[in-house]
Each structure stands twice: as structure tokens, then as C-alpha cells.
Design a protein around this nucleic acid. Sequence first.
DNA 1: CAGTGGTCTAGACCACGCA
DNA 2: GCGTGGTCTAGACCACTGC
Lengths: 253, 253
Amino acid sequence: MGTTQLESVPEPKYWHLKTVLSEALDSEFSVGEILPNERDLAARFGVARATLRQALEQLELEGRLQRRRGVGTTVAPPRVGVAVGSEQHTWPGAAGDAWQATDCTVAAPPASVAGILETAHGEQVHTVRRSRVTHGQQVAAELLYVPASSVPDLSAIDAPSGAARARAVLRELQRLDLENQDRAVELGSARADDAKELDRLPGAPVLVVTTRFFAEGRTAAVSVATYRADTCRLTFGDSGGVEIHHDPERRAS
Amino acid sequence: MGTTQLESVPEPKYWHLKTVLSEALDSEFSVGEILPNERDLAARFGVARATLRQALEQLELEGRLQRRRGVGTTVAPPRVGVAVGSEQHTWPGAAGDAWQATDCTVAAPPASVAGILETAHGEQVHTVRRSRVTHGQQVAAELLYVPASSVPDLSAIDAPSGAARARAVLRELQRLDLENQDRAVELGSARADDAKELDRLPGAPVLVVTTRFFAEGRTAAVSVATYRADTCRLTFGDSGGVEIHHDPERRAS
DNA sequence: CAGTGGTCTAGACCACGCA
DNA sequence: GCGTGGTCTAGACCACTGC
């Protein structure tokens, strides 16, 4: 009767490990601290390295840990809140937005984007690359697809590609009357190029924010922004920019 | 000259596998179709089962596949768009919302929620469980935390717990003047109870939507909703409910 | 009971960062 | 060159589903 029921429904080892580690992180580690390496940790808990890694992967997914090849595993800071919906109904590139344009090419968009833009199959569009930095950290990479028909007066005297061209496309976009916009968020995995820009490995989990911009009764541009899922919490500030303070008791390293 | 450069930068096998499988899914399979089992697939591609599984995990994360223990791996339908932000500034439980209240208990919320609610440590609040079903599929589980101070007139004659109690709490909430609300989305992993409700294994990736409801100058309630990340695309309909049509060319099984 | 995906092991080698 | 995390293998057993 006094016996405690152990493992009657045997929880997976990695799940139990994750719980134990999570509690240890709360009580015995501070942000930025380096954990013992995977081989040592696995030995300490008496499990195979693969099993330990399953637990670490979960904790990284939840933003509790940060792992870097060649360096080690560190305790991650709390996720940063990144405002996504506060600047309602403004074009990308409007004064004071959080993005920096880095490049612009002309290319055929992926099929899913072409479907939204209602462009012909294989039709090329202006493709602006932008990146977003918050608190000194690169948090997102974006591709903005702009059909030629949305920027008819784009001057040929501007550079044919590069950051200057990107700014020219954004400038032209401002001239349209933005009627509405529309957002969706889903889970994805980083393509090789985005992963590199976000300083993650390919396949890293990302939050994909797809935004449609409506002008003149049609979809004038589509933005596909990928945010690091491990470090970001996307905020949709209906309340006018009130910031959520999260786990205020955790201290910085 | 004519030689194709193979593996000069050796892509990981699982990454290449994922690409190959992804293309096969597009061209040779239709939604709902069952794939060969993991042992056969691994043998067919000449890799260890663990490596194949790494590729399948990624594809499942991206919503391309669905795996069920004891059953098999099937081709997933396109993600369903789930409206999260369209019904702006209404209380949970307002007429016509997509949720169904199933239970209500009185308990101390997790520390992160207590911090937002600004309740004392260990203070108990009404905790309403709701679930959301779209297209016959359970897509989300929610816990709604309501401090007693937000529903002062809650009648003692209602049941102390259960669905009836949940509805009573929601009814009382409607009487408050909702001033604003505030949302955040982040990646998480399903706790055991949520996982069961969502018909997934514990640890499955979920999109966690945290909503704060402001009334009478303070946070009157907090909702933490977990959506299946594999099957859902969260839509924030600033444009008044315009629905994104995604990959319309894919056909149902 | 047979077949599926889920967990776990004990190794090996590789790619990367840094001193 | 050394130590780190990342990839990969070839097995084993377990938990669940459906017949």
C-alpha cells in the first residue's frame, strides 16, 4: 500500500530525461552556461548518446537550449518577442520597419507563391531578400515576391540587382494604395539558404509567416518570412504594442 | 567537362532522402495513400532505418506525411487553415466561436501564466478546458485561465466542475467589458494530456497561441491554445476572413 | 497474432570551431 | 589537433492496431 507505482506505464527514457534536464536547467544553470558534452551527459544518466540527444533535441525545440557544432550546448535565453502584426496595413519597407533589404533578383517564384500571386506558371517576378535583426540577433529571413505589374514605373536606371535594386522595388511599392493584408503562420524547416542566413543547420525548425498584400483589388505582393522557431515568439499586437513579459524571474548570464 | 559534380559538398543522406521522397510524394502518390513500411523503404534506399526515419520525421514536421504506430505512414492532406485572429475582440465562448468547452477545474496555473495574470504564487484560478474541431478533425486544445476576481458573481449553484461549470464561467466572462487582446505564437511540444487529446504522441510539435484578454484595466483571462503543428496553418485574417487557397491542384483521396 | 511505427543501444566516422 | 555536436549503422525490443 505504501509502495509507489513505478513505471507501471513506462514513460520513454528520453521523455523522462527531458523532464529531469528541464528541472536542472531551471534550478542549477543560468543563461549562457555551458552544459557537459553529450558523451559525458549520456554516461552520467546511463543512457546511449542517441537517447540523450533525443531529449536535448526536444529542449532545443522548446527554446531551452542552444547547440552549436564544434562549440557545445548552452542554456538559451528566454525567447524574444518579435512583433509581426503591429504595423498594420503598411507596405514592406515603410519608414521604421524592422527589415533590411539585402538583395533583389528576378526569378520564377515557387509554385505555392505563384498560385497566390495568380501569375502564369514560370512567370518571373521581382524577388527581394530582406533580413530582420532584433537585439543584435538575426531572427528572420524573408523573400518578398513582387510581380512586375505591381511596380510598372520601376526605373531601368537603377541597378539590375543588389541592395539598391531592392530598395527601388520597395520604393515603387509605396506608391500603390495598400488596401489590406492577410497573414498565415505555419511550421516549416529551413531551406539551405535560409538556414545559413539564420546561422542554423538546414532543416532547423522555423515559423513561416506568409503575408499577402492587397492593392487595386488584387494581390500585389507576397512575403514569405521564416523566423527561427527556437529563439522567437511571434507577437500579434492587437493591443497597440503592449509587450509580454515572460518568465521575469530568469536572470541573464 | 561533362562530368556532373556529385557530392563535392556531401549533403547529409537524410536530407537528400527527404528531397527524393518529397518529389515522389508530389508525383507518384495521392493524399491518403499508404507508403511502404520503414524497413522496406530503408532497404530500398540502401540506408539504415534510423536514417530513413530522420527524413520521414522532417516530412511529417512539414505536414507532408502522417505516421501512426501500428498502422503505417500515409500521405497527409494539405494543412487546414485555421482562423485565429478574425473574431477580433470577443470573449472566448462568444456566440459562434469554434471552441467547445469540455471541463472546468480550479487549480494553480503554471508559473508563466501566473506571471501574466499577476496572481499570487500558488493562487488558484478557474481553468476551463476547451477543444476545437475543424473539418471533423481535432486541431487544438486550450486551457483558459480565469482568476476568481474576473467572475465575481459566479453562482455556487452551478456544478463545481465539468462542462456545465465551464459554460458558467464563460457566461460570466461575457459580462465584463473586453477592452483589448494580445496574442503570441511560438513553437512548443505537446504535454501528455494535450497530446492525447490531439491524437499525437507526447512531445509532438505544436503551435502554442497565448492570448491575453484585457478588461477593466487589467488582464482578466489568459488562454493557452496548442494547435497541431503538422496539420494546421494559423491564419490571422486582417482582411476580414479572406481564405487562402493553398495548393489547389492536390486532390483528395 | 502479425505488422507497423516508437524506443534504445553501442558503436563508428565526419564537419566544424577554436586554440 | 582536439573536442564538440552531427550523421550513420545494424541490430534489438516494445507498444499499438487491426485482423
